[in-house]
């Protein structure tokens, strides 16, 4: 038992993880976990791993009894078996649980807009034409909001079809929510939540936290007294939409 667990745990784990990675790539869901620029690398390496896994299984047909393994102590054996069991259980989870994006739990825990945006956004935005402004995502708007709360700046810049998931504003959860997106530089581990505050009293009645919406409206002074945000979107329309196939911004 020990020796076969010892010998096959790695092959089983690397085979299962590679199979999951290939399936995720085929179904376009690898972007839930890593930046698109790593997709090709990941697929190639997973394929190599699977070829080696098949070779390992094939070579088992003529394997001599392994004589060169050091017999482990009881403690080592127990440790090794439980490590294999935990890892195995998690990888089974990777096989059966549906892939998911990060939720507001992580957005709250990482604090929306905690990181600074680069200063170029503001300059670029003040010169942008209407078409460009209409294409601004949560990333551009949140960057601008961090740098200015001057209402004159926002006067001729409406928000058009801004897509993101709903996360409550911790300071005034009744009236204000964030249209949020995670921005990813490498993989979901480094996801930074960004958000644009929207003022819409009793929004909870119509939109669930974590559900996806598309917001159109204008920026204006925040009517909420308890929210820390000086400028918010005063929405004309808020529509519930499907989660986009690439939920993160890259």
């Amino acid at each position: 038992m020990w020796s076969s667990v010892q010998r096959w745990r790695g092959v089983a784990l690397i085979g299962a993880v590679s199979a999951v990675a290939l399936w995720l790539a085929a179904s376009g869901q690898l972007v839930l976990y890593i930046h698109p620029r790593y997709i090709v690398f990941t697929v190639v390496m997973a394929a190599i791993a699977l070829v080696l896994v098949v070779a390992a299984v094939a070579s088992a047909a003529s394997r001599r009894a392994s004589g060169d393994d050091v017999p482990p102590s009881r403690r080592e054996r127990a440790l090794g078996l439980s490590a294999a069991a935990i890892a195995g259980a998690f990888v089974i989870g990777m096989l059966v649980l549906p892939p998911a994006t990060l939720s507001t739990a992580t957005a709250q825990q990482r604090q929306i807009n905690a990181t600074a945006a680069d200063l170029e956004t503001l300059d670029a935005a003040s010169e942008a034409d209407d078409k460009t402004v209409a294409r601004f995502t949560v990333r551009e708007w949140s960057g601008i909001l961090r740098q200015t709360s001057d209402l004159a700046f926002f006067a001729d810049k409406p928000v058009t079809d801004l897509v993101g998931f709903v996360a409550p504003d911790p300071d005034d959860p009744e009236n204000v929510f964030y249209v949020s997106r995670f921005v990813i530089t490498c993989c979901a581990v480094d996801a930074q939540p960004l958000g644009v505050p929207v003022h819409l009293p009793s929004w909870q009645d119509r939109y669930a936290v974590d559900s996806w919406v598309s917001v159109t409206g204008e920026f204006g002074a925040n009517p909420s007294s308890s929210s820390a945000q000086p400028v918010v979107v005063l929405p004309d329309t808020v529509e519930a939409v499907e989660q986009p196939s690439e939920p993160y911004l890259f």
């Binding site: 690898l30 997973a46 998690f90 990777m94």
Partner: peptide, 24 residues
């Protein structure tokens, strides 16, 4: 699953998927 548990799984999966090609 509760959000936090789901996010734990997503985060850990992403570390594994990200490291897999480098390990290979």
């Amino acid at each position: 699953l509760p959000d936090a548990a789901q996010d734990l799984i997503t985060l850990s999966t992403s570390v594994i998927i990200e490291s897999l090609p480098f390990i290979v």
